[in-house]
Simulated assay, not measured.
Amino acid sequence: MEITGTVRPGFEGVRDVFADVLAGGRAGAAFTVVRHGEVLVDLWGGLADPERGEPWRENTLCVLFSGTKGVVAAVVAALGVLDADAEVRAYWPGFTEGVRVHHVLAHTAGLPYVDADHDLLDSHACAVLLATQAPLWTPGTRVAYHALTYGYLVGELLRRTTGRTPGELVAEVLARPHALDVYLGTPAGLDERVARLVRAPGYRISTFLDDPERRRIVERMYAGLLDSDELMNSARYRRAGLAAGGATGTARSMATLYDLLAAGRIASPRALARATRTWSEGLDAINDRPVHFGLGFELPDPLGTYGPAAAAFGHSGAGGGRHGAWPGAGLGFSFVTNELRAENADGRADRLLAALHDAL
């Protein structure tokens, strides 16, 4: 597949790996690296819509899935309106006692799914249901990824403390001030720029999990979102503004976002240090995957999710997206793709980050 874009001298090896990544797929992707405001790598190619043969363009938007969590974590760190040690009920009267803000942000709240009939795209209604739902464990004693409920909970906390939706805050705090092509609640006028999502053969979630009982919990967590091509490609999904997985963006803007974060231009150095220190770590109690979280950000794990760098933070997304920063190198990176692959069969971002590390 044809590759478009540029690399700075010395980063040709990254371009070679990107070419190989595209050649092994049936859709499209983009990979960007930004260091201190300078674009070192900016590549894209393949098909934004395999059904219609539409090529991936410089301004193609892609659903970020859980890459959205990192965007929302950046908003939380920038605003500083939530005390991580406070009980959720301090901001949200009537919420279950004993759940602290950091339990929500670091996936230890014990509320990984909505235990009632619900519309997964109605964030406020889901938040109301979660407010009185009994946690599966004593908050803080176990860590397990809150795939969708992270967004319902954090989004409601932001709404109650700022009077604005997460989508409005992404625009006001991040996108407009820094000219980022990132949206939480994608406007109708941008629909033609959004890549069509496709699932690779054999795609599935929670590839580390074999236990059938916990597999049923995972199915409740995702509520069928990743099982439906129609739903995840729908305008209704993109408009819903899901703070856990509904944003769209370009690789260039996501890499720029993390470059700005690493440079202390979005959140203060003190706030960023607090958000990117360890708040939870261990084997996911539901998924059997090693995890490591700050306040909304993923941190380096035994799987090498964030590459060879000793220090990193960011957030991955279902199907292969990877977005983050290497503070030691002073850079941000982003890999976006519309071809969803199972984690145990997807080495695309790993290879790109290894090539980037070699180039540095």
Rank of each mutant, 00 (worst) to 15 (best):
N59S: 12
L242N: 12
V143F: 06
A127I: 00
H323V: 04
A235K: 13
S316Q: 08
G314E: 00
G317R: 03
E97W: 12
G13P: 08
R164S: 13
A73L: 03
D301K: 07
V104N: 00
A19E: 15
A355Q: 06
G307R: 01
R270D: 15
P55S: 12
L120I: 13
R160N: 09
F18L: 00
H124L: 12
W326F: 03
A243I: 04
V128S: 05
D83P: 06
V101I: 15
A175K: 09
L82Q: 04
P308E: 04
G319E: 06
Y222P: 00
L209I: 10
R351K: 13
T165P: 11
P177N: 10
V182A: 06
E298Q: 15
L225Q: 06
L272M: 14
T108S: 15
L225R: 06
S253H: 03
A329N: 01
D117P: 05
E339Q: 14
E87K: 09
A355V: 08
E192T: 07
V39L: 08
A77E: 04
A125N: 05
G317A: 11
L299V: 04
G328N: 09
L40T: 06
D83M: 05
L47D: 02
A318D: 15
M232W: 12
R216N: 00
D16H: 13
G151A: 09
L148Y: 02
A263S: 10
G155M: 01
D227I: 02
M232S: 06
H36M: 03
R239W: 13
G246L: 14
L197N: 05
S66K: 03
A109R: 03
P50R: 08
L226S: 10
V182E: 05
V170S: 12
W326E: 00
V336W: 02
E38H: 14
G24R: 06
Y258Q: 02
M221C: 12
H102I: 02
D49L: 04
R239F: 08
D210E: 14
V143C: 08
M254I: 00
P302R: 13
F313N: 03
T6H: 12
A247V: 04
T162A: 09
P135S: 06
A311K: 07
L22F: 07
F293M: 11
R289T: 15
P177V: 05
R8Q: 15
V39W: 05
D358W: 08
V170P: 13
R176E: 15
A223Y: 02
G13C: 11
A255G: 05
A244I: 11
W56E: 01
V81G: 01
A175N: 12
V114A: 07
V39I: 13
P112F: 04
L136M: 14
T337H: 08
A175Q: 10
S234K: 07
